[in-house]
Each structure stands twice: as structure tokens, then as C-alpha cells.
Design a protein around this nucleic acid. Structure first.
Lengths: 130, 130
DNA sequence: CAAGATATGTAATGTAATAACATATCTGAC
DNA sequence: GTCAGATATGTTATTACATTACATATCTTG
């Protein structure tokens, strides 16, 4: 299995900002947080995000063009991850569901489709916001 | 129920471009197709896309920042729609699945989450591309 | 240490989406 | 018919998101 290698300086900086955030941040928001640390260009953030996403320490929320720290304490398998996004408070809940996963696998198999990545994002209102 | 009102000029133009496309198009690609018809600004396209999306004649593919014509001949109910996107040929297959839908509804109910919109996009290789 | 790989820094550019404001067209009440 | 409000359109400028291209530094490992 793939070990998670030690993070580089920029990766650590980006990771720490995301870990403390209460909701997803855009790359440019992360950059702003890290200007005091000396980061200047978007690419520095995007490169770190690429690696962190590869290691699954960070997930990209496609419908927001933003990023969140993974909330699964440790290792993902090859599992699909889903997100519930509150439109009121901005918080995101990450979850896995074996039924969803197997149903999608079944669809793919039936249609001779080889999946590489699944995006599943539900927007709405969380328990705290209604 | 909401009737689909007649389309306006720009809405028709955008709709016809998307209907003929083999894969999703970005707003700017649509704009380029419609320059000969006299469109000049992104906003003209975005406004049409907003309305078409509202009427569910067009779907936005979040993971591509692009748009496709709905392939369901006629009316959606409140159903969730999913997409399988081929990374090789770019084609998108739209599908509905009651099991996925009810499972997501169950998750939402259990977590006291009120969903408004669901994004479900699978990327991979379609039958024709392997 | 030298060589290749990985990480970083910087500027410029490309792509996606919206804000603000002006004008035109459509529609129903009178 | 015409006036008023709503809807649609046109145009410019700006904001937000992401990548290309190139230079430099640091980290392995033989």
C-alpha cells in the first residue's frame, strides 16, 4: 500500500490552514492565509493541494471550487467519499456509504464503464441550520 | 406543475448548440459557436444557461465547468440525475437510479439534512473507449 | 560529489463567472 | 391603444479560479 510520505514545507502550511478551517476554502483564500508565511503565488498553493489530494489528506469540492481537509482519521481504502454541504453555514460533512458505492459499481459494471473517480455532493441545510 | 415556457432568442441559440454537441461545452465554447449569430459577451450565454438549467433542459457538469443538454426526452420529476463521463472521448451518459436516490434520501433523513441539490458525477472510461 | 528527481519561486497568461449599468421588448390592466 | 412593470438583451469592466513556462534550490542515492 502507499505510505503517506512526510509533508514538505508548503504542503504542511496548506494542510494546517485547511485543518483549522470550519468550511471549505478556495485556493486563493488559502493563499491569503499564508501570505504572512511568505507564500506569494497561487501556484505554490495549487501544487501543495495537488499532492495533498493525491494522498487523500484533502478533498476537492467540485461544486464549490474549494478544498477541505479529509475528516477520516486515517486511511482511505479505494472508497468513494461523499459530501453533504450546508448552504447556510458552509460546513461540510464527509461520509462513506457502502450501499451507494456498490450501487454505483453495479451501474458501472452493467454499462461496461470503468470508473476512476466519483464526485458526490449534496447541497442543502444541515441539522443546525433549520 | 411548472410548464416549460417558450424559449427566448438567446435561450434557443444556446439550446441548439448544446443539443448538437457530442460532449459538454463550456460557456465560452458556446459563446464562440454563437459569435456568428451575433452574441458577443459571456453574460449573454450565462443568462441563457441559468434559465435552461432552471427548466432542467440543460445540466451543469460541476467537475468540468461545462454544460450538457438534458437527454431525458421530457419531464423530470424532482429526481436526482447522475452522469458518467468518459475521460477519453468526453461523452457523458445521464442516468437516474431510484436506489441511489432513496439511499441518499435515507442518509439525509438520518442526519436531519434537508437536501436541495445533488451532484453525482462518475469519471472513467466508457464501453467504446477500452 | 555528481546526477536525477522532487520541491520551490516568480511572472505571465488563460479560463470561468459576475457586477453594474443601459436599453429594448413583452404583457396585462386600464 | 397606452402606460407600467416585468422580463430579456447588450456592453464594459472586473473578479475568481487555474495553468504554462521558466528559473532556482534542495533532497536523494549511486
Amino acid at each position: 500500500m502507499n505510505e503517506t510520505p512526510a509533508l514538505t514545507k508548503n504542503q504542511s502550511l496548506v494542510m494546517s490552514v485547511l485543518s483549522e478551517a470550519k468550511s471549505p476554502l478556495s485556493a486563493y483564500q488559502i493563499l491569503d492565509e499564508l501570505r504572512p508565511e511568505g507564500l506569494r503565488a497561487p501556484l505554490q498553493v495549487y501544487r501543495a493541494l495537488d499532492k495533498l489530494t493525491e494522498h487523500k489528506l484533502v478533498h476537492r469540492i467540485e461544486s464549490l471550487n474549494a478544498f477541505v481537509a479529509c475528516s477520516h482519521a486515517a486511511e482511505h481504502g479505494g472508497e468513494m467519499v461523499a459530501f453533504a454541504i450546508c448552504e447556510a453555514c458552509g460546513r461540510v460533512e464527509e461520509f462513506c456509504d457502502p450501499v451507494l458505492q456498490s450501487r454505483l459499481a453495479a451501474w458501472s459494471h452493467e454499462h461496461d464503464f470503468i470508473p476512476t473517480r466519483t464526485t458526490l455532493e449534496i447541497k442543502g441545510r444541515c441539522a443546525a441550520c433549520h
